[in-house]
Design a protein around this nucleic acid. Structure first.
Lengths: 202, 202
DNA sequence: AAATCTCTCTAACAATCGTTAGAGAGGCCA
DNA sequence: TGGCCTCTCTAACGATTGTTAGAGAGATTT
């Protein structure tokens, strides 16, 4: 990993735990193992590190969103049970593994959670990433499931709101709360599975 | 308002926006209009301000929880429609006005949201206040509504989870996101009302 | 071989950080 | 009146903050 990447990696870990202002240049350099002036060779100032992280995150989620579009276009092979099909389709498209569980994304969400209250740019990205985008993806997928006859059309709007609120609550409760441990990941998965079977199998 | 109270008030406003470490003693004193040494007459150090805020919040929510117990004990007068009755009872017991909309509580929730990632005491209080306590209150109220015949008993567990996730999502989306404007409050109320009528009137 | 480019270092800068010693002013009790 | 308590002030402390000038080492290009 390049020095620049190391700096961004260490900075993200520290910013997402203690907040941007609470972390000093010397904290970051100490952990990376370089002198302060070396950091200023790679970044023009402290703010530039934060901006670079945000830019990297924007690019990253743009890629994920494009991938979701592609995934939801392709019809999936039919499963034995309707509920399983819906469940898998949603899990895939929400990309839990490559989004909420992904270390870089997870830490960025924590950082945005901390910094949103005094940084309007971060606040907008935070709202888009955690509320707007997921809702639109979920709406799109449920509409396709409805077209395919898996869900009655008149129920789509309510189902997607129900689903969206449940996933959002679980995200804040398990994935943006304290350390991201295996235990919390498992609790998240268990509740998602419980919701899906209750809602679509019963 | 006493100097001590002014300090706590100003500190809470600053901490909840920029985070504890990012706010300096001089920032607080400048806003209050005192010298730094005066602050140290009222608080033994910076951490003591934070601890005092947490202590005040604990006392505050203990009072609210006691009040909820009292409220949910008393049977409410019957309304014309079942849905209205459920709606009002829930709104009352969740105490939106005196909890989520209350300036002190709202700012404390923001502060806990920021500081939870590197302060275990705050993390536990955050989880209790936003997830554990609300869920238990909601469960208790729905059980009483079920006993009174308003809801079939077998549905209680699912309904309370559905309700809880919806309220939690709305809280993060509208009340713990950017400034707490009238617009956001109204959007929150509108969505709560929409949920209640859809879920219990349809 | 000479010059240039890339990267890291030493060493320091003014500004700001949390905190403290000690003086002074006003009210209350002896 | 004299002594004490409450509250605020002036002035400073060493430590840490973000940032910079400039040198040096190694690789690449001329």
């Amino acid at each position: 990993m390049s020095t620049r990447d190391k700096i961004m990696d260490v900075a993200l870990n520290m910013f997402s735990e203690r907040g941007y202002e609470a972390v000093s240049i010397r904290d970051i350099c100490g952990e990376v193992g370089i002198k302060e002036s070396t950091l200023y060779y790679h970044f023009k100032n402290k703010k530039d590190i934060l901006d670079s992280l945000i830019e990297k995150f924007r690019t990253h989620i743009d890629g994920l969103l494009a991938h979701v579009d592609e995934l939801t276009e392709k019809p999936r092979p039919k499963k034995g049970k309707k509920a399983d099909d819906i469940s898998l389709q949603m899990m895939d498209s929400y990309m839990i593994d490559s989004y909420l569980f992904d270390p870089f994304c997870n830490l960025m969400l924590r950082l945005m959670m901390i910094e949103q209250f005094h940084n309007e740019e971060i606040r907008e990205l935070y709202e888009k990433t955690l509320f707007t985008d997921p809702y639109e993806i979920q709406l799109s997928v449920f509409r396709k499931l409805s077209s395919a006859g898996a869900i009655p059309e008149k129920d789509v709007e309510w189902i997607v709101k129900e689903y969206h609120s449940y996933m959002t609550m679980l995200t804040f409760k398990y994935l943006l709360n304290g350390d991201l441990t295996e235990k919390r990941k498992n609790a998240y998965y268990r509740e998602v599975h419980e919701f899906m079977t209750r809602r679509f199998l019963a």
